[in-house]
Computed example of a mutant assay.
Amino acid sequence: MSDTTTAPVDSVDRDETDLGVVDTTGDDERDETTFALFEGDEGRLDEPQRRALVALLRSTYVSARTHADEWRAVLDGEHQLRSRLNDLFLELHVDRDREVAWKRQARSESQRRAFPTLLRDVPYTREETIVLVYLRMRLRADPRPGLDQVVVDRSEITGHVAGFLPPSTDRTRDESRVAKAIDRLVTARVLVRTSDPDRFRVASVVEVLLPLEQLRELEHWLRDATAAGGEPTDGAGTSLPAEPTDTDDEGEPSA
C-alpha cells in the first residue's frame, strides 16, 4: 500500500530548492524598488549615480578634482548615465586621461529632425576667447605631471588681454569686459577659484574645450583681428556650453 500522506510545506520547499527549482516570483518587483530613496520612487539609478547625473546636468563638466565622488560614480555607472542623458537628447563624453566628463546636445545625423534642447551654446566674446587661448597655451607650456597644476593671476590675464585689444581711451570699460570674461570662465569652471580671490587654477577641461586644431584656428583669428584693429566682436564662432543652472562655484584649496 502506498503512502499518500501530504508532505509538510517546508519539506517540499527544501526538496525543490535542492533540485534547482527556484521561486522567482516577485523578482521584478524587488528590482524596481532596490534603489528607492523616497515614497513612490521608481528610479533605476543608485544614489551616487543620481548625484552624478544631477552634477552633469547642473555643471559644465564633472572632474575628479571638482566632483570626486560624482566622478567615481560616472566611471562606475557610465552606461546607465549615458542612457539617462540620451533620454534627454544629450550625449555623455568621458575623458579618462584628463579625468573629466561632460554633456553635449545630441544632433540628428540626418539634420531633418530637430531635437528639443535643454542646453544653450553662448558664443565667446572677444575677451573670453583671448583668455581661453591664453589658458590653453599656458597648459601646453607646463611640463609638470598631473592635472590642474597651472595657476594664473588676475593681473597677468588682464595684461595679456590688453595686448590684443584695439586702442581705447576708455580703460574702465576694457577692464570691466576682461573682469566679466574671467567671471564667466570661473562660473564655467574653466578657471577654478583658490583661497586667493585673484589667483585661479586652470582646469584641464580647457584642453577638451579647445583641441589643438581649434587652438591654432583661434590663434590665427586673434592675430588677424588684432591687426585689423576693429572693435571687440564674438570670437570666431566658438561657444561655451552654458546652462541657466551653472551656479556651482565651490572654492578650491590654496594654490
Rank of each mutant, 00 (worst) to 15 (best):
E91G: 00
D69A: 11
T5E: 06
E29V: 11
E156S: 15
F164R: 13
T6W: 00
L19F: 10
R72S: 08
T25I: 03
A52H: 03
E207Y: 07
A242Q: 14
V74G: 03
V178A: 11
W102A: 11
V186L: 09
Y134R: 13
V151F: 02
A55S: 15
G43L: 05
L56K: 05
E219D: 07
L45R: 04
E39H: 10
D234T: 14
V205G: 01
R136W: 00
L210C: 07
T169D: 15
V133M: 01
D153N: 13
E47G: 06
V122H: 06
T233L: 10
T34Y: 14
A7N: 03
D95C: 09
A225G: 02
L90A: 07
T24M: 11
R189Y: 05
K103S: 12
T247Y: 01
T129N: 09
V150R: 05
R58E: 08
W71F: 00
T60H: 11
E243H: 15
S63Y: 05
V190L: 08
R184Q: 11
T172A: 15
I157E: 13
L139M: 10
L147F: 01
S59K: 14
F35L: 05
V100Q: 05
R50H: 02
S254Q: 04
R144W: 01
P123E: 08
R98C: 00
A101T: 00
G229K: 04
L56P: 03
A228R: 12
V202E: 04
P241I: 04
P145N: 08
L135E: 04
G235P: 03
S155D: 14
V206K: 01
T245C: 12
T4L: 10
I157F: 13
R107E: 11
A106C: 05
L92T: 04
A68Y: 03
S108H: 11
R199A: 10
R84T: 13
E47R: 15
